[in-house]
Simulated scan of single mutants.
Amino acid sequence: MRERWRLLRIDWPTACIAVRARDGIEWGFKFLLDGYPARLPNGRPCDIASGQPLAPDKWPKGVGRFAAVFNPAWNPGALYLPCDRLALPGHDQWRTELPHLIWPPVRGIIHYLEILHELLGSHAYHSPVRATA
């Protein structure tokens, strides 16, 4: 989709999708999609090559809202978003405070990917420090 993301693999009920950040780095996300599209997905950062969960110290970094969403200390198996099945329970206030981020089954996974792309494209996202040669 305009090179914002690309499908890596599907092994139902999971799908791995890479989302491009503003610095050109692709970040992998593994989605649990059982019950899709009626049931909210569950997403977490994963290794693009293997699909295995990323270690918490390898998650994308940033500040503000970005840091709250990508917070493995909260739950290393989920992102802290109103469209994630593990994050929404217990956050009823999100339905009125953040209605645009609540899971709309008619939009499908595109909704979740657009939120991730927006976050990874924001100035709150910090590019990883790369070792110099």
Rank of each mutant, 00 (worst) to 15 (best):
E3M: 13
E3D: 14
R4Q: 11
R4N: 07
R4I: 10
R6L: 05
L7H: 11
L8G: 04
L8R: 15
R9Q: 14
W12N: 06
P13G: 15
P13E: 07
I17K: 09
V19Q: 10
R20G: 06
R20Y: 06
A21Y: 00
A21V: 00
D23G: 07
I25T: 14
E26Q: 13
K30D: 08
F31V: 03
L33I: 05
P37N: 03
P37Y: 02
P37K: 01
A38M: 07
A38H: 11
L40C: 08
L40N: 02
L40M: 12
N42R: 15
N42P: 00
R44Y: 13
C46D: 07
I48C: 06
S50Q: 12
P56D: 13
W59Q: 10
P60T: 09
K61E: 06
G62H: 02
V63A: 09
V63Q: 09
G64Y: 00
R65D: 12
R65S: 13
R65G: 02
A68Y: 01
V69T: 14
V69E: 09
V69S: 10
F70C: 00
F70P: 01
N71M: 02
A73N: 11
W74Q: 10
P76I: 04
G77A: 13
A78P: 03
L79G: 04
L79H: 10
L79D: 04
L79K: 03
L79P: 03
L81V: 07
P82G: 03
L88P: 06
L88N: 07
G90A: 05
G90R: 02
H91R: 13
D92K: 15
D92Q: 12
R95E: 01
T96V: 10
T96W: 00
T96F: 03
E97H: 06
L98I: 04
H100Y: 08
H100C: 04
H100F: 11
L101I: 01
I102K: 00
W103Y: 08
V106Y: 08
I109W: 05
I109A: 03
I110M: 05
L113C: 03
E114V: 01
I115K: 04
I115F: 08
H117V: 04
E118M: 05
L119G: 05
S122Q: 07
H123L: 14
S127Y: 02
S127N: 01
V129R: 15
R130G: 11
R130D: 11
A131K: 14
A131Q: 11
T132L: 07
T132V: 07
